[in-house]
Design a protein around this nucleic acid. Structure first.
Length: 619
RNA sequence: GGGGCUGUAGCUCAGCCGGAUAGAGCGACGGUUUCCUAAACCGUAGGUCGUGGGUUCGAGUCCCGCCAGCCCCGCCA
């Protein structure tokens, strides 16, 4: 209902201008404009919207706020466009103006959505007047080569995918980049170690399996930490690799291939599409980063290392903190790579990605690192005017004890194991339920439902809390059939599918009216759609919020807003389902209610789809 | 020492640009099934929004101090 909101805002603004022309003129002179403070109503009994703009005017105008509200309302009432949208405004409390949309207006909005595959959500190019929007880079997941994906990659992968889906749906060209760790010191360590203990892994594909590789990596890391000779050799190995030594490159390629195939299994399972573009991709551009920074006069050599000193960030002794872009041994580090990536992503095509927005979905612990990198990139002039670069931080995954999630043995939890357990628990729960209800289902059905529910639960639980806070992981809570969980939402969709199976023609419902409503411009009564029950209106009002919610997620990058919306929609639908008969109702209520069912199912499917969650017909 | 994030009901969490009596879910307690899947619905109880100041018509929300927890702070990513 963003278009309605927009129209109302304009009408309110005009009404305020007419009611208080002098004050408005004064406000305009001082650079500001009067603000109607239009917002969705905080409670259903206040109507659809509330305008709080009268209150702040009380002091400058020297009038009681209710009197100001009354003057605005009087002007509103004189506006025929407003009267076509809303019932008579109500003044409440200290001076709030409560607005309620005309029921026929809501019905028309419903009819319009029934005929619209996008359910009323516009695209970015429509809003930009047909101009193609610049690409958005979403940098997420980013596991390390030669390691397995673990719980630390869970949130970035799920949140990043969801944000990418929302941006894509809104019509942005999205580059989903997997910035895998495939280039740093770690490779020097691993290759050096493998040369000594398992040289076959360096020239034969799959000579050792990934689990062993992970063990080798751990050993290499341990040696690196307390053996100076090994450390030196490993550093030399990195230099060789980065210089393009054929043997090192071959070994590196084999290791990457092997890891890549393992990552892909997880991504396939979670239905996540990613373009791999690891750190190594930026290797050819690292020197240019340092050169650019030198040319810009930003680079300072301090204790042998190439640094850019950060503005507004001081460490101990109040000295500015450096961002090191070239190590004293001449090598580059992750800050260099991150800078090269920013430089490349914002650079115009074909030398770069030509991005207008770059977002990094990484844990909150990297906030200061990114703040530093962004600052340097900005000072170096790599971020064009009007473009934005954003860190999208998220908190730790904690166990139910409130500490960082670990296995019982104290190890990092592998992502594969975590997903397996979710599906196993979902399956056990489903089998128990089927036995209790004496239902017979074949194994294909059970496996499909368990997989869908289990993975949906993991995704939804992660997305449903505000990402900035730490997130307490609990199989029991996420798989619960009640409350704000994936199973609850999936069940709402299943209920609607049930109505269709029992003879409700969802596809046809509302189709005939959709066309006529569009022709009538939505102002006239809409064909056969007819609503009377409060549960119907509540559902309609909820359904019409979709476009606003998606717009909000697009700017705020907070998937939990979408989750809350879908949960509330499910609740309102369940109330409707419980209290209002559909199939047994007489016409025209029956068709109208079927149309609401269809729109609810479409909305839930679309919303869950944007979360990366597929729906079920039966469960 | 410096910086960041967090602190809201017994538990897990929402709370949008500062707006009306601070909201959900779980758990607890009580109710609903000849009717579209009860994986549901209805109701009751439960709060010093960490704490002390400030800003103003109005503060969980903005500013300052303090307390607690977590994280980051020169050549790992």
């Amino acid at each position: 209902m963003l278009s309605v909101l927009d129209a109302l805002n304009g009408q309110l603004l005009a009404a305020m201008e007419r009611a208080f022309p002098e004050a408005s003129a004064r406000a305009r002179e001082s650079g500001s404009s009067p603000d109607p403070q239009l917002a969705p109503a905080s409670k259903p009994e206040f109507g659809d919207f509330q305008a709080n703009g009268a209150l702040p005017l009380a002091k400058p105008l020297g009038q009681p706020p209710r009197q100001i509200a009354a003057a605005i309302v009087e002007q509103l009432a004189a506006d025929p466009a407003f009267s076509a949208l809303c019932l008579e405004p109500q003044i409440a409390g200290p001076g709030f103006i409560n607005l309620t949309l005309r029921p026929e207006r809501l019905t028309a909005e419903v009819a319009a959505r029934l005929g619209d595959p996008r359910l009323g959500v516009s695209t970015a190019s429509e809003e930009a007047g047909g101009q193609a929007p610049a690409p958005v880079v979403v940098d997420f997941s980013s596991p390390n080569i030669a390691k397995e994906m673990h719980v630390g990659h869970l949130r970035s992968t799920i949140i990043g995918d969801c944000l990418a889906r929302v941006l894509e749906f809104r019509g942005h060209p999205v580059l989903r980049l997997n910035h895998v760790g495939d280039w740093g010191t770690q490779f020097g360590m691993l290759i050096t170690h493998l040369k000594q203990v398992a040289p076959e892994a360096l020239d034969t594909a799959d000579a050792v399996d990934l689990g062993d590789l992970v063990a080798f990596y751990r050993q290499a890391k341990a040696r690196f930490d307390d053996d100076e000779t090994f450390q030196t050799t490993a550093r030399e190995e990195v230099v060789k690799l980065q210089a393009g030594d054929p043997l090192s490159l071959k070994a590196w390629g084999l290791l990457c291939d092997q890891s890549r195939r393992e990552f892909q299994k997880i991504y396939d399972r979670l239905d996540i599409r990613l373009s791999e573009r690891g750190e190594s991709f930026y290797n050819p551009f690292l020197q240019a980063v340092v050169d650019d920074l030198t040319a810009a006069g930003l680079l300072v050599v301090d204790a042998g290392a190439g640094c850019v000193f950060l503005e507004g960030v001081s460490g101990k002794d109040g000295q500015p903190l450096p961002l090191i872009v070239q190590k004293s041994d001449g090598g580059f580090n992750y800050a260099t790579t991150d800078l090269a990536a920013i430089r490349y992503r914002f650079a115009p095509k074909p030398e770069g990605d030509g991005a207008g927005r770059v977002i990094y979905v990484t844990d909150a612990g990297q906030a200061s690192h990114f703040a530093g990198v962004f600052q340097v990139a900005r000072r170096a002039g790599w971020i064009p005017e009007g473009a934005s670069v954003e860190h999208v931080p998220f908190g730790l995954v904690q166990g139910e004890d409130g500490k960082k999630l670990k296995t019982r043995a104290g190890d990092t939890v592998r992502l594969k194991d975590l997903l397996d357990e979710a599906v196993e628990r979902a399956e056990a729960d489903l089998r128990r339920r089927l036995a209790e209800e004496e239902r017979q289902e074949d194994d294909t059905f059970i496996e499909h439902v368990a997989t869908t529910v289990g993975l949906a639960a993991v995704k939804y639980a992660d997305l449903a809390t505000n990402r900035i806070t730490n997130y307490q992981f609990s199989f029991d809570r996420m798989l619960a059939l009640t409350g704000n969980t994936a199973p609850y939402l999936l069940y709402a969709v299943v209920r609607i599918a049930g109505i269709a199976r029992r003879g409700g023609d969802l596809e046809g419902a509302g189709e005939s009216v959709a066309g006529s409503a569009a022709v009538a411009g939505g102002a006239a009564p809409c064909g056969d759609l007819s609503f009377s029950e409060p549960q119907e209106w509540a559902l309609i009002r909820e359904l019409l919020k979709l476009d606003g919610v998606i717009a909000e997620v697009e700017t705020e990058l907070l998937p939990n807003r979408l989750c809350s919306y879908l949960f509330e929609l499910s609740q309102v639908f369940n109330r409707f389902y419980d209290q209002v008969p559909v199939l047994k109702a007489d016409e025209p209520a029956r068709s109208s209610r079927l149309a609401l069912c269809r729109l609810t199912a479409d909305t839930l499917k679309l919303g869950l789809g944007l979360l990366g969650i597929p729906t079920l017909e039966r469960m």
